[in-house]
Amino acid sequence: MLRDAFFKGVRDLRRSFLYWAVGIAFMVILFCLFYPTVRDSAASVQKLIDSLPAAFKNVFIGQGVSFTSPKGYIDGRILSFMSPLLFLVFAVGLGARQIAGEEEAGTLSLLLSYPMSRRRLLAQKAAVLVVAIAALTVAHFGALVIGVTLEHMNPGYGALLGANVDLFLLALSLGTLSLTVGAATGRHGAAVGVSTIVAAAAYLVNALAPLSHTLKPLQKLSLFYYYGGAQPLSIGVRPVYAGLLLAVTAVLAAVAFLAFERRDVRV
C-alpha cells in the first residue's frame, strides 16, 4: 500500500473517503425517500415554489422545472445544488492537499529529494484525485439507483448515469483547478480560495443568467452550463459538453505540469 506516491495517496484517504461516501449516499437516499410526500402534495408544493423569488429559486432549486416530477425533484433536491456542493468541497480540498498541502506540511522537499521527477509525482498525485472523485461518483450513483428504485421514480438509468458522469467531470475540473493553483504556488489557501471563488461564481452565473441580460452572455463561460445547466436530468447532458469539461481539466493539468516543473519548492 506504500508502493509509491499514488498508493500512499489512496491509502491516506481511506478513512475520510469512507465518511464522505457514506454521508453522500445517506443524503441521496434520504432525499429519494422524501419524494412520495412531495408528489402527493404536488399542487401545494409547486405553488409554494412558484411563490419564491425567481433568483432564490434558480440558485437553490433549479430553473423553471416541475419540482414534483421525478426528474425535476431529483435535479432540484439533489443534482443541481447539494451534490455539486459536496463534490466540490471534496474535490477542491483534495486537489489542494496533493501538492500545496504536502508542501506546507514540509514533506515535499524530502519527497522530491528521492529519485522521482516532479512530473511523475504530479501525475501520481493527479491520479489520486481522479480515482477518489470517481469512487465518490460511484457511491453517489449507487445511492441514486437504490433511491429511485425504492421509490419507483424511474428517471431512466441511462440519464442518471449520464448525469453522474457529468458530475464527475465537473468536480474533476474544479479539483484540478485546485491542484493546479497549489502546484503553481505551493499555497494551500490560495488553491482552495481560488477554486472556491471560481466554483461559486460559475454556479451563480449559470443560475442567474436566465434572469439577467448582463449575465446571459456569460452563462457559456460557466462550468455548470456544461453540467446540464445544473439540471442534468431535466435539461440532459451532452457528450460535447462532457468533452468540454474534460478539455478544461486537461488544459489545467498541463498548466500544473509546466508551472510545477519550473518553480522553486518552498521549505
Binding site: S109, S113, P115, S117
Partner: peptide, 19 residues
C-alpha cells in the same frame, strides 16, 4: 534524478508523515 539516486538527504526542517 541520477544525482538523487546516489544521494541521501536529511533536511534542516525535517517533516515526516505524522500518521
Amino acid at each position: 534524478l541520477a544525482v538523487r539516486r546516489r544521494v541521501g538527504f536529511l533536511p534542516g526542517e525535517l517533516s515526516l508523515y505524522s500518521h
